[in-house]
Design a protein around this nucleic acid. Structure first.
Lengths: 147, 147
DNA sequence: ATACTAGTTGCAACTGATTGCAGGAGCGGC
DNA sequence: GCCGCTCCTGCAATCAGTTGCAACTAGTAT
């Protein structure tokens, strides 16, 4: 647990409290590479503080998500995953057939967002999407049965 | 229950069986206006056949979803909703602040899909999206706190 | 009509996630 | 340093959705 000063400020400025539990959850997310499930965060925090409750993990990631500090993604595995939001915004292309995951630059969604805002006035959040479909290889193999 | 002949054919052609339970679930979805939750489908079917199990409802909508006969949408209410796929493909713009729901024409997503396919070779499914964000009114009121 | 088989059902147990509540703790003001 | 308001936590109950399994059945072949 270290260097979380800015995050703590963001929390306080928005009327939230910087509790030890939150800092531990924050730290787990910050120092992880890529996505973590709620259960993984839970296990990680338990090493330092065995009394945490899983509901605290869920409530904390909800707060962090609302503050746009972490992104939430349903990768289609049954468990939702969370990721610390870093500089490089990206999305995931998940193949329904072979479950491979590729990255998609934020640019594509940015254009879509701008277009929707222009034409409808609705300002979409397109922070972190999981887009399902068929990857190149599986299309080639054409064993994608769907219809 | 009527006029489900084509659907029954699609089921059979894909190696599925047209069971009474499925026909009732199908009928509930077909004759409903808009979205239904699994629980709503369940209640509806129970009127005709009180022995259905909720797991049958879930398994059936999964099959129908895979066949692209119904679309699944998480409207952010905690319950997933299902909708019979009709001619007019559309998406939903859901305001995080006031929970209002607006429609978005499929065209926007179609362009994005084509672009992704061209540049990455990944063929995305963009059938029916729920896009969260801030509606025009709530942006104006600027009581959208986020960050 | 009968038999066979793969897909389906209902049940019960289970998993991931959410919620209500009473006690506890952060943090801004004095 | 202490007070008090508000937010937060852990617990337990609950909800939405999934899964393993044995019994059953739609649809096909005979």
């Amino acid at each position: 647990m270290s260097c979380e000063v800015e995050t703590v400020q963001v929390l306080r400025q928005t009327g939230h409290k910087a509790t030890p539990q939150r800092l531990m959850i924050l730290s787990a997310l910050r120092h992880a590479e890529g996505h973590l499930t709620a259960a993984e965060i839970f296990d990680h925090v338990k090493l330092d503080y065995p009394y945490v409750d899983i509901s605290t993990v869920y409530r904390t990631v909800t707060v962090l998500k609302d503050l746009r500090l972490v992104s939430e993604t349903d990768m289609g595995t049954g468990e939702t995953t969370y990721e610390w939001v870093r500089a490089h915004r990206h999305h995931h292309l998940i193949c329904r057939s072979c479950d491979s995951v590729a990255s998609l630059d934020h640019r594509y969604l940015e254009d879509l967002g701008a277009e929707i805002l222009d034409e409808t006035g609705f300002k979409p959040d397109l922070d972190h999407f999981a887009i399902f479909g068929a990857c190149k290889d599986c299309q080639a193999r054409a064993d994608v049965v769907s219809r």
